[in-house]
């Protein structure tokens, strides 16, 4: 059981399942899944997403723009929603984060609805991602006061950073899983306040590395790892800002 905070920094949690290309898919699937979820996710919306790709071929650089459709099923207050697109299912929870006890049942329910609709032949990727927006009421910020995952600068380098990014991927389960961690600045609406985004994305790095029937167990395990990494990235000064509940 992880620590609890009265003022948690999570602005979005996402659990995403990408199905292998051999999984059958057609345009009726979103509607069939919606029928199974509409009591809890009654609002339905569409997003037309654009994907930009740049490829280097014999004739030089070529740009391709592809459009794909995603259907969103939202709860009444629009803070939690399910996204469904070609061989993709994602469940998102926006701030205020409903706690793991509130979020996990929605993941289970959406995955179960998809699993009862489609014969899922394999999982290409599963991801559990937490995006934290951390406001620190001071600027400049001494990163090491708040983080245990930050930029180290040798004494011969300039010490006053205008911008930065810190990122890394950690291997888990003998390389089957990875956890990508990034810390980077975000726009602030106040000069008195510094804002950082701590993005923790734990994902299945090996296609079909997890059986479909074990997917939800994997998600539970991923959540434990995300919590460990989150706590490993921060110091007690941030825990105080988040108001730990004991």
């Amino acid at each position: 059981m992880g620590r609890k905070y009265a003022n948690p920094p999570v602005v979005e949690a996402v659990c995403e399942f990408r199905l292998t290309p051999d999984t059958p898919w057609d345009m009726t699937i979103p509607g069939l899944v919606y029928e199974k979820l509409r009591d809890e996710f009654p609002q339905r919306e569409q997003r037309l997403l654009q994907e930009v790709e740049l490829t280097q071929g014999p004739e030089g650089l070529q740009q391709q723009i592809r459009t794909s459709e995603r259907i969103l099923f939202l709860v009444e207050n629009r803070k939690t929603f399910v996204q469904i697109g070609p061989r993709l299912l994602a469940i998102n929870a926006l701030k205020p984060y409903p706690t793991w006890a509130g979020f996990k049942p929605k993941i289970e329910r959406a995955f179960e609805a998809l699993n009862r609709t489609v014969e899922i032949r394999g999982l290409e990727r599963i991801g559990l991602r937490y995006i934290n927006r951390i406001e620190i009421p001071s600027s400049p910020v001494r990163l090491e006061n708040y983080f245990q995952f930050y930029v180290f600068l040798g004494p011969r380098l300039p010490q006053d950073m205008a911008d930065f990014i810190v990122g890394g991927e950690f291997a888990y389960a003998n390389g089957r899983d990875r956890c990508r961690v990034q810390l980077k600045p975000a726009p602030s609406s106040s000069p008195e306040c510094a804002v950082l985004v701590l993005d923790i994305d734990y994902f299945l790095a090996q296609e079909k590395g997890v059986e479909v029937r074990a997917a939800i167990d994997w998600v539970e395990e991923a959540h434990d790892k995300v919590e460990e990494v989150f706590e490993g990235c921060i110091t007690d000064s941030l825990r105080n800002l988040f108001q730990e509940v004991r």
Binding site: S139, P140, V141, R142, L143, E144, Y150, V151, F152, L153, P155, Q159, D160, M161, A162, D163, F164, I165, K184, P185, A186, P187, S188, P191, C193, A194, V195
Partner: peptide, 16 residues
């Protein structure tokens, strides 16, 4: 030298 700092930016950085 031992305390790198970072100052808040008011623009969307390339890092996003």
């Amino acid at each position: 030298a031992s305390s790198p700092t970072w100052r808040a930016s008011f623009v969307f950085p390339f890092l996003l």
